[in-house]
Structure formats: C-alpha cells, structure tokens
Nucleic acid binder design. Structure first.
Lengths: 222, 222
DNA sequence: GTGTTTAAGATTGCGAACAATTTATACAAC
DNA sequence: GTTGTATAAATTGTTCGCAATCTTAAACAC
C-alpha cells in the first residue's frame, strides 16, 4: 500500500468538502486523519497548510484545523470575482476550444444529468462545480485555472452553509444553454448566460438566516 | 529571540525574491534556511509548501526547493490575468477609497520616488510591485487581494528573468498618472492607463537567459 | 443547582533522529 | 581527456518523542 502525497491528501479532503460530507465548522483532528490516510501527522499538517492557504480550512493555533465557514463578505467577494473571471474564461474557450473539447463539455453535462436523475445529490453538487472547473481548464490560462480550482470548492462550501431547502447547486439547463452558446461562437450570449447563472446561484442563497455567523465584535465593544 | 511563524518565514523569502536577492533558479537548501531563521527544517519545509502553492518556489522531489523560473506561457497568463483584474480593482478603489486612502497612495508614490532618487534599485522594484498591492488592498475584495499578493511577486520574478538593460520595474510617472485619474474619479482614464502600464511592463521584457549567481545566506538573512 | 478551581487527559507545535535518495568524489578503464 | 563506476558525503523525506497548550471532567464552594 503506497502512501498518498500531501496533494493527494488535500484533494481527498477537498472532495469531501465539495460533496458536503465535511460540513463547515467540522473539526479535522490530526490523529484521526493520520490514521485514515495511514500517514504520520506531519503530512496531515502539511496538507492543512495547503488547504488553509486556499481558504477551505481555517487553522486556529493550538486548537486545530476546521472546515471554513465562509462569511457573507467572503461570499460576496467570491461571487464578484467569479463574475469577473468566468466571462473571460468563456471568451478564451470560444477562441481556443476544439470540437473534442466541446465533446468533453457535452459529456460532462450528460454526467450531471445522470446524477440528477438518480438523485445523487452529493454528486450533483460536485459535478456542478466541476463543470465550471472544466471550462476553466479549457480556457488555457493556468493562473485563472488555479484560481477557479480554489473558488469552486469555496462556492460548494457556501452552498452547504446558505443554500435554501430545495435548490440544486446549478440549474441543469443553464449549463446546457451556456455550452450551446459557446458552440455557436456566440460569446455575448454565453457571457450573459454565465453572469446570470452565477447571479442565480448567489441570489438563491438565504444569507440573512445565518447573519449571526459573522459578528463584528469590535463594533459591539467599541 | 522569538521564533518566526511559517508565514513570516514565507514572507521573508518572498521579500528576498521580490528584491531579486534570490534570483530565479536559486536552490533553497533546508539546512541553510533553518540555520538562517533559527528554526527546524520542519518549519522551512512548511514554508516551502506555501511558497510552492503560490508558484514562487518549485519543489523537485528528493532534490529540493528552487526559486521558480517562470516560463513564457506563465508570463503571458500572469499579465493577461492582471490586465483583467486590475481594471476591476481600479473601479472598486474609485468607488470605495476615502481621502485617507488616496493619501496612503500618494505617500507610497513619495517612497517610490525617494528610492528612485537614491538609486536603491532593489527597493524600487519591490515598491513598484507593492504599489499594485496597495491598490488591491484598497479595493476591498479579499479574493482579488490574495490573488494580487501572489501575482506581484511572480511579476517581480519575471522581471528578474527577462528585464531589459535599464528598465525600472514600473515607470514612475505612470503610477502617478493612475492615481491622478483615480482621485479625479475618472475610471475610464485610470483603467486605460493601468492597462497601458501593464502592457508597457510586459512589452519591455526580452527573452534572455538569466545569470545564476552565488548566494550568501548570511548577508541576506542577518 | 450554579459557578469556580484543580487536575487529568487529549491534542497540537516543534525539533531531533533515522531512513531514503541524490549529489559529489575518487579512481579505473578506454 | 572523457566516460563509467563505486564509494562517501550531503540533502531530503519521514517518523517518533517530548514540551506546550487546550479541553474535559471532577471536586469543591456558594
């Protein structure tokens, strides 16, 4: 049995967070994870450093690692950034994507639809996020791609925190419409749909219910 | 003597890279750094993980950590991303910045000018980068701010690799003009100037081999 | 019953020691 | 002079143990 690398450990934890198996606020005990992955605590700590740098995990000194609970400010910043970046991704995809790439996107849509039909909610959430990751990959900008690989899991975390009773992460047909517009080289429409899509997700969140999560102690005791 | 945190170690190394005291390709030996910072190798390795995640350092398994030598593709992606993001930063700064914030920017321009007058080239390079970081900070978007704190040192690295014979990282007056336009709430002009500014930097680069120098750790981290 | 103090237990932070791997050196062969 | 190989040295990768800190629980006072 070969031991996993730090990145592999971080990826496994990221997957668990994206699928909501590790809800926001979960304690990540070093010993438990070291046992689960069959490695020493050192490697777990190193994986935590990676995850903390991406914002998925928050480290409290001497107290341990916890799955981040994004604040409303972070939520706003994340969606604002995605609305800035993903239109650019679409422009690049339209400029660069081959027919094979479009086929990959279509295949991904199939996977999403299948997961939806079988009511595999966790899989739906992850695949919805990975649709945006696939687009970022096809755009061919490594900097933006890396940024998206951080923002997508964070968005999943936000959905876990704030999502309404029956909201599926991303409405399926919106993804399909975006790909239709991309395939038609209609960047204006694709960008408009993407922006609307992101706004849909953000607006479906009921942030008000959880406003107590980001309390400004300074303003209270000033 | 209090021991530095992982982040402080990473920041010190980042500073050294930004000031071109650690040129691209430099080997970062764990023992040497552990001695320089008076900590165990464990913390140095953790700092490396942070720096590698930001792209400043490249880890070669069993061979060690090296200051990254950005490729031409990475250079293109970094500048493309900055041209996308920094106009948005300017919009936000114009929308949010107080007169105090403008004063901070003016003060920074003073610092830059002073470093230029005293021919402190390393300081000029770093301050030029930090001007963009200050703008990002004032924009108030933590996601974008974090991205810029990664892209700026990388840009310094690129300048170290590819800069021409006598190009000062950023022409001084361009920064001043951008602030003038921001203070006048003229976002169109400020954005145009910023894009032109970034293009200037990118276009001044010439693709040449870099010269590897010997590094004296004691003098750098005394 | 509520709240405080104290002690035991558990967890994290750190560094030293050991193992695995690479790099440097010496030397022989061609 | 170069190439190849074997050995030694140096460096990285990992584990383990100990100290510091936090958490829990029990004992105690009110």
């Amino acid at each position: 049995m070969v031991k996993p690398s730090i990145e592999q450990i971080a990826d496994r934890i990221t997957d668990a967070i994206m699928e909501h198996r590790l809800p926001p606020g979960s304690k990540l005990a070093e010993d438990k994870l070291a046992g689960a992955f069959n490695v020493s605590r050192t490697k777990i700590r190193q994986a935590f450093i990676l995850l903390a740098n991406e914002g998925l995990v928050t480290l409290h000194p001497n107290r341990g690692a916890f799955v981040t609970s994004p604040t409303t400010e972070q939520t706003r910043d994340i969606f604002k950034t995605r609305r800035l970046i993903e239109p650019e991704i679409i422009r690049d995809v339209i400029a660069r994507a081959s027919s094979q790439d479009i086929a990959r996107l279509r295949k991904h849509l199939e996977e999403e639809a299948k997961a939806r039909r079988t009511d595999d909610r966790r899989r739906v959430i992850r695949l919805s996020g990975e649709f945006h990751l696939l687009l970022a990959e096809l755009a061919g900008n490594q900097v933006i791609n890396k940024l998206m690989t951080e923002l997508c899991p964070l968005t999943c975390l936000i959905i876990a925190l704030y999502d309404g009773p029956k909201i599926p992460a991303c409405p399926e047909d919106e993804h399909t419409q975006i790909i239709d517009a991309i395939e038609a080289n209609d960047s204006a429409t694709a960008i408009k749909l993407m922006k609307r899509h992101l706004s849909h997700i953000e607006n479906e969140l009921n942030i008000d219910a959880y406003e107590e999560r980001d309390i400004h102690w300074e303003s209270i005791y000033s």
